[in-house]
Amino acid sequence: MQSTMLSRERKWYAVYTKPRWEKKSDNILLQKGIESWCPVQKVERQWSDRKKIIEVPLFRSYVFVRINEMERIAVLDTDGIINFIHYLGKPAIIRDEEIEIIKQYLLMPGTTIQVTGIQALKEKTRVKIKGGVFMDNEGEVLRTGKKKVYVQLDTLGQVLVVEFPIEYLLPI
């Protein structure tokens, strides 16, 4: 009885897409009635004759889905979807709070996020963030610059490069 209830509970997962299929796969999933989210941010791109603001996916080859266990096959049976992102041999569950933090941050005017693979960063420092959308959250800062702080989201295996004043950090 309890396993039936668990299979109907919706959780966020990250799925891996074909290159440059993030927005297409997101649209197809939504058309199937599957809750999907492809976070995008506006960036300015230079063409030979003009500059243009376009929306680009925040995470290359990733789309997030909020599904129950019974919907996993329907997700995998979607054009552009390759597989679920796995952590310790199981599809990685993304905490609702992590999704909400990314959504809130993307809504703030003038913010930018760059994403890089976790393996590209070496240093690790535990900090508590004392300002902005990430306030009162703890994280692992993997590297800092004058204005950039690299905060690890463990379940994604990704790092958000968030630009905010370094004085927002409190080592713990």
Rank of each mutant, 00 (worst) to 15 (best):
residue 52 K to V: 07
residue 57 P to G: 09
residue 16 Y to I: 13
residue 13 Y to C: 01
residue 26 D to F: 14
residue 34 I to H: 04
residue 62 Y to I: 12
residue 19 P to A: 12
residue 21 W to A: 15
residue 33 G to Y: 08
residue 29 L to W: 01
residue 16 Y to F: 15
residue 28 I to Y: 02
residue 48 S to P: 10
residue 5 M to W: 04
residue 44 E to D: 01
residue 61 S to G: 11
residue 31 Q to I: 04
residue 8 R to N: 13
residue 32 K to Y: 09
residue 54 I to T: 04
residue 10 R to H: 03
residue 53 I to K: 05
residue 59 F to R: 08
residue 37 W to I: 06
residue 9 E to I: 14
residue 23 K to G: 07
residue 39 P to D: 10
residue 6 L to Q: 13
residue 14 A to E: 04
residue 4 T to K: 12
residue 18 K to C: 06
residue 60 R to C: 07
residue 58 L to V: 12
residue 22 E to H: 07
residue 55 E to N: 14
residue 24 K to N: 06
residue 18 K to G: 10
residue 62 Y to D: 08
residue 58 L to R: 01
residue 52 K to F: 01
residue 22 E to V: 07
residue 10 R to A: 06
residue 28 I to K: 03
residue 38 C to M: 15
residue 23 K to L: 10
residue 20 R to W: 09
residue 54 I to A: 03
residue 32 K to H: 04
residue 6 L to E: 14
residue 28 I to C: 02
residue 45 R to F: 09
residue 11 K to A: 00
residue 9 E to Y: 07
residue 53 I to Q: 02
residue 29 L to F: 02
residue 9 E to A: 03
residue 30 L to M: 08
residue 12 W to G: 01
residue 25 S to D: 04
residue 38 C to I: 11
residue 10 R to I: 02
residue 37 W to Y: 09
residue 41 Q to R: 13
residue 31 Q to D: 11
residue 35 E to M: 03
residue 42 K to Q: 14
residue 33 G to C: 06
residue 48 S to E: 13
residue 11 K to L: 07
residue 59 F to T: 10
residue 18 K to T: 13
residue 37 W to V: 06
residue 46 Q to M: 11
residue 44 E to P: 01
residue 49 D to N: 15
residue 47 W to F: 07
residue 3 S to I: 15
residue 28 I to G: 03
residue 37 W to P: 00
residue 23 K to R: 15
residue 7 S to C: 05
residue 46 Q to R: 14
residue 18 K to N: 13
residue 46 Q to H: 07
residue 27 N to I: 01
residue 8 R to E: 15
residue 52 K to T: 11
